[in-house]
Design a protein around this nucleic acid. Sequence first.
DNA 1: CTGAAAGCGCTTACAG
DNA 2: CTGAAAGCGCTTACAG
Lengths: 308, 308
Amino acid sequence: MLTPDTVRRVQRAARTLGYSANAFARGLRTNRSMTVGVLIPDLNNPLFPPIVRGIEKALLSRGYTALLANTDNDPERETSSFSALLARHVDGFLVATARDNDEILDEAARREIPTVLLNRANTERRLSLVTGDDRAGIRSAVDHLVALGHRRIGYLAGPEGVSTAEVRLAGFRESLADRGLATGPVVRSGSFTEAAGAVAAATLLTQHPDLTGVITANDLIALGALRTMQVRGLRCPEDVSLVGFNDMRFADAFNPPLTTVHVPHEQMGAEGARLLLERLDDPTAPAKSLLLPVHLVVRASTTAPRER
Amino acid sequence: MLTPDTVRRVQRAARTLGYSANAFARGLRTNRSMTVGVLIPDLNNPLFPPIVRGIEKALLSRGYTALLANTDNDPERETSSFSALLARHVDGFLVATARDNDEILDEAARREIPTVLLNRANTERRLSLVTGDDRAGIRSAVDHLVALGHRRIGYLAGPEGVSTAEVRLAGFRESLADRGLATGPVVRSGSFTEAAGAVAAATLLTQHPDLTGVITANDLIALGALRTMQVRGLRCPEDVSLVGFNDMRFADAFNPPLTTVHVPHEQMGAEGARLLLERLDDPTAPAKSLLLPVHLVVRASTTAPRER
DNA sequence: CTGAAAGCGCTTACAG
DNA sequence: CTGAAAGCGCTTACAG
């Protein structure tokens, strides 16, 4: 018979000696690793570190550790990182890589590993996910420009086949239609990067020199557009007003500070982790979609259109 | 007797069936996890994602996986993350958290877990490390301002007890002395952040309104200084020239684009991982210090001092 | 309620 | 050279 006192003394001894159960032996026996795989497409994009932070905070309190893999938007690295995580017996996945028709999602489903999507919409699968309300975000950007008096508004879209790009583009078209405005010109940026955004902006501004406002699918594309405008001697916002998306870190330090749609990324990570923990606790829990509210942050890159 | 052909067929079958050895069982037996713990002080600081990327690239090819922990510069989270990594039997540590007198380093040494420091100098321990050549970097910043004609140069230092802060500050004082200039005024920023940098810049510029040039211990502090100058109606570079450190992502997008010292962070991560792999392959390998070359990138935040 | 025993899936030292 | 056996350190089903 162990007295409570004995229990306490043993626990204290264990602590002072730095004992902790061997994770290998435990995992081998229980088939659980207390580990979650996190797939991030581009850690250098400032939108992702806050997501990772939210994830880590939510997992840590429950004794889980995040295994982070940065795929650099490279399908091959995505596959090999995914395999490495599988081999380490992660209990679940948080997936922020954004390609549609993703075979890693099929594989996770086949192995019945709980998976939650972050910052990307669902495809046909029944997976839990957390996104910002992209449609409402783009709508607030359109409303802002229209309220300032803009009527000729262009759009720099994200790459094809990426769900956030598609939702935001659809939101742009809908919002203009709802306002009774003709569909503005759209140019796709080849990727969510500054370089691709600069190229796309050059095309858009050359083909449509009459535009007074441009909305972009994310802040990096907006930054590329700023650069293109500068090269061409176009002033922002006097000649063209510009709106970004994400309110990523440093968007307020650009020249000019960028009007953009704020997305609560740290919360996104935390909520995603929480949804995953629910599934880990109860594998029969139903899939959920969480849509986080977003809001426009008005800075100096937008103003009323110049008279022409 | 297994023919080579049989071997091949078995291997193929294993591959198609998706077999991979159970990592728990292997770890239990071999006491190796093929896993490396990475401690990062602040993933939201753009200097760290490239380091992580370099680490991951170098580890992946050798079959190791990085377990990333972001400590938010919080000693408590550092300790708990470190314990979580220990419990997962990481084979080694890459440590970029920068507090001096770090008990986690003692603990790693006690357990004989190979450890490499990134972006921070050694304390008394005999550990391998990789840093940028901070001294030379600050010297190039001083030389640049002096060559432009500046004589009254101030310095915004990093927080006390952080090795990079101390080395760069010493470099500033040395460089001025070597140039035969009086030591310029120094104000410490409470942390390597924009907010703390803004506060420190306010103090420096109030106490020394005659300064024509300011060098900062990192780009975030410089960004805070830019903000303070803007609030006070001081123009950069016309009134005060400003130099950052790190050449972090987006330093070229600031207003004005920041003159700063470029540090090869991705290479830093990769070299650090390589040093760690050396130790893992041969625990008797001697400790090495790697000093990576840096260079000044001149942008629009520095110019010749105004006549007064 | 308690304690001994089996077994998770590997690797490796050892017998044949 | 080959193959069977032991054992890593846990957890848990089971006998007492």
